[in-house]
């Protein structure tokens, strides 16, 4: 059993975007802060720390999840992918192009989280897409461009 008392630092090992990181951290450190402050991966944005805005969404073992609702220490041994890793994936350029073509980005603060959800379920149906998209708040676009961009990708996929 692992245990760390109070402000004792916990040692965690995590694979983030394919790199293995080993860090000593306070057990209370949120994954979002771990990624941003310990690893310098500032593409993950923090919007509410209540799990409601979706800006901090990353992939944990491939599944989209809120990084603000996870203690980094609890993810010892896990595989995390942030936008900095997602942008190296072969599917990324198509997503980026679609978002841009349909004007799905304005201030861009919510965007990396949405891209994480988009790439997390590539076989999503339109209904599943709506479900995933409802897990993100965007105040700029009215979601119109984002939805169009995502729909376009799903339709292209279906056409393949």
């Amino acid at each position: 059993m692992n245990k760390w008392m109070h402000d004792e630092l916990a040692v965690v090992t995590m694979t983030v975007n394919g790199h293995v990181y080993r860090r000593a951290i306070e057990p209370r450190l949120l994954l979002s802060d771990f990624l941003r402050d310990e690893l310098g991966l500032t593409g993950t944005h923090v919007g509410c720390e209540q799990g409601l805005c979706g800006a901090c969404t990353v992939l944990i073992d491939g599944a989209a999840a809120r990084s603000c609702l996870n203690l980094a220490v609890s993810l010892n041994g896990k595989d995390i992918t942030t936008i900095e890793g997602i942008r190296k994936r072969p599917q990324f350029p198509a997503i980026a192009q679609s978002l841009s073509r349909h004007h799905g980005v304005q201030c861009g603060f919510c965007t990396p989280g949405i891209v994480a959800s988009m790439i997390s379920e590539e076989e999503a149906t339109q209904e599943e897409m709506d479900d995933l998209l409802a897990g993100h708040l965007c105040r700029c676009t009215g979601y119109v461009g984002i939805r169009e961009a995502w729909k376009d990708l799903i339709q292209k996929k279906a056409g393949e």
Binding site: T42, G43, T44, T82, I83, E84, R87, I95, A96, L99, S100, R101, H103, V105, C107, G108, T111, P112, V115
Partner: peptide, 12 residues
């Protein structure tokens, strides 16, 4: 299309 998009979508 916007010149801002690329960096924002990439998280940069």
């Amino acid at each position: 299309s916007r010149v801002e998009d690329e960096r924002l979508i990439r998280g940069q």
